[in-house]
Amino acid sequence: MLSLQCLFLFALLGGIAGSPPPDPVPILRLPETPEELKLEIEAAAKSAEIDEPQALAFAARAVAMGKAGKNAATRVGALDAALRIPLRKKSADLAAQRDVLWDLVIEEDAQEGVLLAPLVARNLKDEARLEKLRKKTKAPELKATFAYMDLLPQINKRDRNEQETKDLIAAIEKLKKEHGSVADPMRKQTWAETCDGVLFPIQKLAIGMEVPDIEGKDTAGVAFKLSDYRGKVVLLDFWGHW
């Protein structure tokens, strides 16, 4: 015991051989980026279900990152990371952490349409927060996103009568006219293109319409067309083995 203490003392005083103690290596840690945090959350969620303490620890890091963030990308990224924490049970504490970031982003970055539009589109359930943002923003990408959001209940409705279909088509045409040239950052195209994509199934795939042709390759790699089967009743089935 005594000899151990001596050895420790020796080491402290400069080592047995008299060599100077090594300089402490400075720990150079770059500040964590939102992308790193997102990847870590994703990896943690893959290996096991995330519990509340774990979720709150991730959220705390996101909040710290957001508060320290000197630019919109970091703050919005931190909010995005916090919103991606997959916790199944409801947690008031997690909601409070997310609210801190929402408030920060709405306060500082409400005009960052390109950064915020995809986040808004992915978090439509956060209605109260989105309303706040909607009131504050003048960003064209967000105005278009919010206009589209208003149409979603109708777009997602399975059975529309003739009048509802007409009204919906008119509403989408209006959105296209007003916001068509604006970027849709989530889909990486313009809102005109997004509107056309939404209109296609509504206009062309209604009961009674002539079916649009499909050209492609079969699972053996042979090219064919749906119209090759004209003259036969066709059951077209979107399916998979999963």
């Binding site: 997602n156 994509g197 939404v198 296609f200 199934p201 509504i202 795939l205 209604a206 009961i207 009674g208 319409m209 002539e210 079916v211 499909i214 492609g216 119209s227 004209r230 003259g231 036969k232 009743v233 066709v234 059951l235 077209l236 089935d237 979107f238 399916w239 998979g240």
Partner: peptide, 25 residues
């Protein structure tokens, strides 16, 4: 194909008559 057709649920079925008209979905 599913993106263009706006398919969000699987399976989605279309029943098309011999003239090429969509009759059921």
């Amino acid at each position: 194909i599913s993106k263009r057709w706006g398919v969000t649920g699987w399976p989605t079925l279309y029943l098309i008559d011999a003239k090429g008209k969509i009759r059921h979905k």
